[in-house]
Design a protein around this nucleic acid. Structure first.
Lengths: 189, 189
DNA sequence: GTATTTGCCTAAGGCGCTTAGGAAATGTCA
DNA sequence: TGACATTTCCTAAGCGCCTTAGGCAAATAC
């Protein structure tokens, strides 16, 4: 038998690709083994099992999105930064729907803390530095951004806007403008 | 053997209760049969199988939320209606987390059209009648409401705000005020 | 009170997840 | 280079879940 030379890292990456193709919900040790051309049991040398595989894909997706955001937010502020951050999530979901779904998968507290989750919170706070919010309001604004971004992207990915006009891009632009308006005038609300 | 007198309706309702207790993801013909004290195969007299059971729970949840919204929106307009609609989703998710998860479950187009999904879109439009939006902007506002409500509730349900201060209620209030601000000044954005 | 329908059963096949243990390819070091 | 250790992938087997087929007995219809 020729060996493929798999490692935990490569197996998880292939799992992520598989998720993008068939959906994160369908990814398992069995479907991944089939794709890799090996027996299911052989995967247990690289991941602890089904849950471990899926958790690692979740972690990978969170890291990748945070990396992208770090890159795309550099040198931007205000509305420009807001648009860039939104585009990171929406663009990542469009390119990697399975991985995006994975990133929304519930984790235990232990894994959540070790994940790139905290980096994402920091990214939102970075965007908000371009607006004039006092400390007390900032948490709420972070939560507003998270809710709106993830809500929109989830709905779009699930096809919620697919069968209605106009195209979702227009709503996305309008929503970003709305968020900018809110953040600029937060104190009045 | 004493009969329980189950019907499709009662089985689905019990499935919904089970979802609230152990999570929608864990609901299956097997777990539901165990809870009902019957054999798994016996459930096939009432539902076509696992997928059918889960789809029916999804439909039930959407109907229940729409019914609640119909009731709670009666006689309200403007900010009051906005708050009431948000409270429907957030309150339903708090009382029935499993059912709320079910309501977010992807459906095929056929089922989606037959579900209470369209009623929910109508509910958002009803709330927007209290604001002065022209037709072209209305779609975007509907999508903004959907995104923000479901985004916030999903994050809250997944425990995203659980380990951070201040309590999510404060953010919720602030976010509703923000939405009201946006809707009131939509034309300026 | 018999006939029909219906609700729940047992039995059995197929498949996915997991563990145990074996064989062959690869890496290490004299 | 050759002996040994490690790693990768395998087969075998157990368990649990999903589903279908067919049987029996309780409820219902006439």
């Amino acid at each position: 038998m020729p060996r493929l030379g798999l490692t935990t890292t490569s197996v998880v990456r292939q799992g992520a690709e598989l998720a993008d193709e068939i959906g994160f919900a369908q990814v398992s040790v069995t479907t991944l083994a089939r794709r890799l051309g090996i027996k299911t049991a052989s995967l247990y040398a690289h991941v602890r099992g089904n849950d471990d595989l899926r958790l690692r894909i979740t972690m990978l997706a969170l890291e990748e999105m945070a990396d992208r955001a770090d890159r795309d937010l550099a040198g931007r502020a205000g509305l420009e930064a807001l648009v860039a951050l939104g585009e990171v999530y929406r663009g990542y979901a469009a390119e990697h729907p399975g991985r995006y779904d994975a990133s929304r998968f519930p984790m235990d507290a232990q894994s959540a803390a070790a994940s790139a989750g905290p980096r994402h919170a920091a990214l939102s706070r970075a965007v908000l530095r371009g607006y004039d919010l006092d400390e007390a309001h900032q948490v709420h604004a972070v939560r507003l951004l998270g809710s709106t971004f993830h809500g929109f992207v989830s709905l779009e990915l699930a096809g919620g806007f697919a069968h209605s006009r106009p195209p979702s891009q227009e709503s996305w632009t309008a929503i970003l403008a709305s968020l900018d308006l809110i953040l600029t005038n937060w104190s009045d609300a």
